[in-house]
Design a protein around this nucleic acid. Structure first.
Lengths: 107, 107
DNA sequence: TTCCTTTTTGGCTGAATAGCCAAGCTACCG
DNA sequence: CGGTAGCTTGGCTATTCAGCCAAAAAGGAA
C-alpha cells in the first residue's frame, strides 16, 4: 500500500492536470469520443504548440491516451470515473449560479 | 446557461484547488468529518500560515465550508460528488501501481 | 529522394503559486 | 483592562507554469 503523502501527490497530479480551462475543455470534449489534435486545437483556439503541451500534461497524468492513425494523432479519455464527476460538479455549479441569481433578484 | 469557456474556467478552479498534495490530503481527511485548522495543520505539517492559505483556496473553490465554534474554526466538505471520485481514482491508481509492479517483476 | 503536413520539443518571457516570517485580527480568559 | 490562543493576511523570494515562436521529428505524397 502507498504511503498516504505519496499517494496524495500522485492523485493531486490528476487534479492539477484538470485544473486548467483549456485542458478541461478538451477533456470534456473527449467525453463524446476521440478527437485529433487538430480538432482540439480548433476547440481551444491556442497555438498548436500550446495545445500539444497541454495534451502532454493530460497524458502524463493518465487522463488521456493517444493513438496514431494515418497522418493524425487521436486522443481519447482513459479515466472512467471522470464522466460522473464532471456531470456532478457541473450540476452543482449550475445550482450555485441559480441560487446566486435568486439572491440578486431578492435585493 | 453559462458559456462553455466561462463554465470550464469555473469548473477548472475546483480541480486546481484539489491539485496540491497538502490540500488534497486535508480534503481527504475531511471525508471522515470536520476538523479544526489546528488538526489539519498537524496533518500536513506545514507552517500554520501556509495551511491557512491552502484552506482559503479550498474555500474560494467551494470545496469546504468553515464554522467558528468556541475558540476554533472547523472545516467540513461541501462538495458531495467528491467522495465518489476520490474513491474511484484511488482504486485506479492502485491498480496502475499493481500492474506496473507486475511488469517490473516480469523483466 | 525531397517536399509537405501534423505533432512535439526547446527556449524564452511574463505571470502565477508555494511557503516562510512577521504582523494583524478576534475572541476568550484572567 | 492586558494577555494569550487560534487563525488570517501581508510581504517577500524561489519555483513552477502558460503560451508564443522557432525548430525538430515522423511519416505520407509526389
Amino acid at each position: 500500500m502507498l504511503q498516504r503523502k505519496q499517494y496524495m501527490a500522485a492523485q493531486a497530479q490528476i487534479f492539477k492536470a484538470l485544473g486548467h480551462p483549456s485542458r478541461l475543455l478538451m477533456v470534456d470534449a473527449l467525453r463524446n469520443g476521440e478527437q485529433c489534435v487538430c480538432d482540439l486545437r480548433q476547440l481551444v483556439g491556442d497555438d498548436i504548440s500550446t495545445v500539444s503541451k497541454h495534451l502532454a500534461v493530460l497524458r502524463q497524468a493518465g487522463i488521456v491516451e493517444q493513438d496514431k492513425r494515418g497522418t493524425n494523432i487521436y486522443y481519447r479519455l482513459s479515466l472512467p470515473c471522470l464522466d460522473n464527476f464532471l456531470s456532478c460538479t457541473r450540476a452543482l455549479l449550475e445550482n450555485r449560479l441559480v441560487s446566486e441569481l435568486s439572491i440578486l433578484r431578492e435585493e
